[in-house]
Amino acid sequence: MTAQLAPGRRVRVRLDWPETRGPCHIRTPYYVRGQEGVIHRALGRFRNPEKLAFARPAEELALYHVRFDLRRIWPEADADLLVELFESWLEAA
């Protein structure tokens, strides 16, 4: 997703496991992959850490605070959650 995402927009974190395809550096926790959340706010643009980690040319990506209901991930959680996620991991929900 490349257009700026407005607060309140529903998104889904891509259900993807690059770890299974070779060496990588991922800032998207396992437990939110495939989960639906809501854009909380835009945090700015930062260089793609997945490339920076390997000293490769790294483009800037939009970073968002995405809000999740933790109870939908773990019923006992009783909280909500903010996670910083790059636009490359978000798809329309």
Binding site: R27, F46, P49, L63, D80, L81, L82, V83, E84
Partner: peptide, 9 residues
Amino acid sequence: IRVVDSTAD
């Protein structure tokens, strides 16, 4: 409670 998982920049 709002948990903030510090994952990026």
